[in-house]
Design a protein around this nucleic acid. Sequence first.
DNA 1: CGGTCAGTTGAGAACTTTCAACATGGGTGG
DNA 2: CCACCCATGTTGAAAGTTCTCAACTGACCG
Lengths: 240, 240
Amino acid sequence: MSEHLIRKLGQFTTLSDSDRDAILAACGGKRRRIDPREDIIREGENPTHVNLILDGWACRYKQLRDGRRQIISFLLPGDLCDTHVYVLREMDHSIGALTPVTFAEISRETLNRITAEHPRITHALEWDALVTAAIQREWTVNLGRRIAAERLGHLLCEIFIRLRGVGLTEGHSYILPVTQADLGNAMGLSSVHINRTLQELRGCGLIVLKGRQLTIPNLAALQTASLFNPNYLHLGRGGR
Amino acid sequence: MSEHLIRKLGQFTTLSDSDRDAILAACGGKRRRIDPREDIIREGENPTHVNLILDGWACRYKQLRDGRRQIISFLLPGDLCDTHVYVLREMDHSIGALTPVTFAEISRETLNRITAEHPRITHALEWDALVTAAIQREWTVNLGRRIAAERLGHLLCEIFIRLRGVGLTEGHSYILPVTQADLGNAMGLSSVHINRTLQELRGCGLIVLKGRQLTIPNLAALQTASLFNPNYLHLGRGGR
DNA sequence: CGGTCAGTTGAGAACTTTCAACATGGGTGG
DNA sequence: CCACCCATGTTGAAAGTTCTCAACTGACCG
């Protein structure tokens, strides 16, 4: 199950068998499973360990007093919830499940041990943290300066590449297991407008959506239409 | 000049004289000064050292092919450009000056030395990095789910608290040295709409703007109107 | 004094939201 | 097995927000 993380980090550096075993062992600990709409951790709570998504989609989100909800980022299989949270006293946002989610709880001690004994993993985790920050910055651009169709197209490109990195795409397709309302909460749009924007993208032939299966027949075309530049995902194998 | 950084970190932990001296020494190296609209570093370039803003306002920004520009974050005196950039091969965004800016270039070696010898600084820098990430997340919420007046009000609250943390406020006021166009590029709004929104905030008595001096007569009122919750700035002195 | 930049204003256009109704499909209880 | 329920997706139309364009003002500078 934690092969997703191994595979993700493998995009940046070459992990040894010992590195791989260490990751597998770290994920062997406590494991939890929750239903959609349940929270992994809530704003205001004190984080005690680092969570690794093993299966399903979760999200960071914030809810305003009057009920408006914004999804801040998607957490896909292989994603870690920041490795340094315990420096802070309390969460400033919540993490919730969008689908049934299985995740592992990794203790601070386990993480420290890995960091001490596996410099390559440490380095890869630094890369992962920087990419995560870059994704958040790109979302700022997305929400600030792209119109609905570009914005949604951009997200679909980003998710395709992220899922491909952990082996969860099939050809040009992947499973998009979230509702249109979720997409709206992530893109700062209403669910009605998401619906119409999806139709627009379908109408242009940029995507094919059958139930929950999304196909991007021509990734380059969708990227161009969405002003998507993958440089921020830093897939160039900087490591080693 | 680098007292701003010392003061900022002092919000989180108590630095020793030796810690303070180490920071001052680190900033004693190469120092550069640039004019507004010039870049400190450009997208695609290879970052070789960490920059510390000593004076003036800079910003991270991205420009789309068709010229649309989004400011991703403001860099204020005392702000460091991420301490781990050198893990990546190239910048995925640019950093540019909004006013005349003085900054120090801190080499990777210097930073490593500080990290090795001053655990309290290291810890405080971790806190600073987490707060920076939290700010970026909050901007996602801001752009996604707040209307113009709330959005701008939220930014003005955030900047007030950040500037106060480095000693750059005077009573209820601070200098807002950027143009309305800059504010628009940061908030995902047109400069025309920024202008009207500022008038709206002034009309409600939430802000007073005389030239470049901004006064927030009643911070709590502006916070309430903007749905601003300062928890994400993590000022609770978690450290020690 | 002319030029440039930042700020201001008005009006129409474009984009997005809201509301309300309806369609579809899977799951549950009778 | 069917009826019903509920969540999700779809559609239309009006309302609201924000943008664009274009003109104009004021301040500063050479």
